[in-house]
Nucleic acid binder design. Sequence first.
DNA 1: CTTGAAAGGGATACTCT
DNA 2: AGAGTATCCCTTTCAAG
Lengths: 151, 151
Amino acid sequence: MTASPLEPIDRAILRELTVDGRCSFTDLAERVGLSVSAVHQRVRRLEARGVLKGYAAVLDGEQIGLPLTAFISLTPIDPAAPDDYPQRLEHLTQIEACYSVAGDASYVVKVRVAGPTALEELLRQIRELAHVSTRTTVVLSTPYEDRPPGL
Amino acid sequence: MTASPLEPIDRAILRELTVDGRCSFTDLAERVGLSVSAVHQRVRRLEARGVLKGYAAVLDGEQIGLPLTAFISLTPIDPAAPDDYPQRLEHLTQIEACYSVAGDASYVVKVRVAGPTALEELLRQIRELAHVSTRTTVVLSTPYEDRPPGL
DNA sequence: CTTGAAAGGGATACTCT
DNA sequence: AGAGTATCCCTTTCAAG
């Protein structure tokens, strides 16, 4: 299901937009060496194809009052239970991402909370909502994150 | 070091920009119920304070030819070695994020590669560059990711 | 913080190559 | 496809309330 490989110019466009998502079409055109219209066309096509899924502001977790990040591995208590954990947990806004994984656990979720107390409460909610046991890895610091994929 | 708590309007602005990072100031002003100038001022202030660290395009990993995502836990082989793993691995573009963690491992990195062969080669590089043993958790699917923090 | 205005630049559509 | 052009809208700054 991996779609047609990307052209070099499209890759250049995506690289620029990953670094600066608010870059103007004029600047973008200059950086990739195309006219404004051509870049405009290509960006719209990339958006339509779903390669470019959107644009997001990058926030500083510490400065928005959510300084504690953690990864929580979820292991089902009842192996026969239906596999609907993502939906069961979706409404918990502290959960930033949910991954289905191969390994000891079934899922790994990335969470962001205000502190240890909030983490404890969140763990209680997750266990109750999803009937899972949890293993939590607390993040001490983040040397880097959200780097542009190797385009 | 958690800075002054955010005002409701600032939180609203950040919420909108997390969902649509290319939203125009005109639209933003409408959505948060402020004048364009006022929104402009607030966004610049949030950027200056470092709350708003930037804007990034959100790409579809599968469609850019990097369908395999994994988390790799790094455990030092020599406990006395200097703690400079992030720098040693920084140039590996397959590494999207690096977290210093509390737990069995010292670091967890999130990687994105073209397939199993590329993952094997990357693991070899990581072990050699950082003198660590690795434990890899392959991501099978991603129900959701990059959700707006609970603002 | 709001309004209003004004200059400059960007976005978008259209046409031509 | 890419380039050029014209129009309209947005961004950005300013002054004043």
